[in-house]
Design a protein around this nucleic acid. Sequence first.
DNA 1: TGTATTTTATTTGTCGACAAGAAAAATACA
DNA 2: TGTATTTTTCTTGTCGACAAATAAAATACA
Lengths: 234, 234
Amino acid sequence: MTDTDSSSLPERKRGSGVKMVYDLLRDEILDLKLAPGSPIDEVQLAERFKMSRTPIREALVRLAGEGLIETLPNRSTMVSNIDFLNLHTFFDALVLMYRVTTRLAAQAHRPEDLAVIRGFHEDYAAALAARDPLKMIATNAAFHAAIAEAGRNPYFTSLFRRLLDEGRRILQLYYQSYDEQFPQRFVDEHAAIIAAIAARDIEEADRLGKAHAEAIVAQVQKLFSRNDRLDITL
Amino acid sequence: MTDTDSSSLPERKRGSGVKMVYDLLRDEILDLKLAPGSPIDEVQLAERFKMSRTPIREALVRLAGEGLIETLPNRSTMVSNIDFLNLHTFFDALVLMYRVTTRLAAQAHRPEDLAVIRGFHEDYAAALAARDPLKMIATNAAFHAAIAEAGRNPYFTSLFRRLLDEGRRILQLYYQSYDEQFPQRFVDEHAAIIAAIAARDIEEADRLGKAHAEAIVAQVQKLFSRNDRLDITL
DNA sequence: TGTATTTTATTTGTCGACAAGAAAAATACA
DNA sequence: TGTATTTTTCTTGTCGACAAATAAAATACA
């Protein structure tokens, strides 16, 4: 019923296959539908998407370029593991990018950027109200990515996007383990950040971005220290 | 005599082709042997490297992932242009990464890292003495990449490497245009940075990294403002 | 002569097949 | 029974060929 109906649409536009496979695999990895360490089989994917291995491989090369999968030469390829031993490097980079992007947004944003940012802000609040963790994680990332875009520095935005992606995986674990609700507090902090950006108050934006990032990091670290004590393997 | 001798080694190890093409094209792009905007022809490359288009394409996908080439769907693919209108975003990111990586190196380096860093430091000094611009550019980048490695934050090192790559292209233009010598001053600054890292003086390392970066940026900006006045198209 | 339309040519995207490399299984040998 | 060696299986890396999409050339038409 889903895709066994071979009569309907075996036709796909010419260069769209790779993007489709790339986007879907990326989402499945970031939503932990594909667990870290899971093997990735090219022929299996080729059958699933009803296409040859060539475009599959191209999508995999891209994912490998972003560090989402790892390839052992001549052997297997699998979803990248989360490096819990070096989480601090992730947090360091995340906090700095929160600061830099918020700061730049306050400096370089244009009026139309604020509308986009406010849109994701509301999406996040709605996801929180609906207690939909998966959506909260995604809209939170989209909110901060939009702020980064308003800062208009592609080098920072691309690194920040990568960090937010990795963060999505980590937050998934958070919710899978405890089912706590994302604090309402974060919504208020988001609102304050928007206000600072709109007022073009660079130092205040920096300060709020830093505080917000550190609050999130502290919460996640608290979780993982608990996990350490309970000796849960992830 | 070079590679027209088809009897000698038509055999290549199994996964080595892609890496070879990738590395070579990357160097040719960063050394401006392939000018920005140059078209890249898959079949031509396939003939040149005596392999099928498949591994060539994989190398191109990787290069595209790093922004070194750009692909127009169903049409052509070409070497990425340098975005002179937004150079300031490049400089912003470069200065920040200089600071962060130097700071982290002072904090997290191990004794063996210093040996590597000092090695590139001497290579750079030697290239300066030999007045070999291409080597100076490459060893300078290697020197700072080694410092970043000593900081042990893969998120920062990967962004910094990308920035140093882009910087190689820009500095090439610098030398192609003016043939000035890279200031001796930079060697001394490198030595001071090494000393601060070795002493684990984080704030001093940060300060020196920032000053060093801003000196380089100022020099390049001076060049380009001159070019603007002379109305030279690049 | 200038514009619109068809035809050709070139380059990319995709396919199915084959061979190399490594792991797993099977066999030989002590 | 335990270890070393061979065989098999499975997955990846590479190839040559074909088809789609676009650009360039050629032709038709006013």
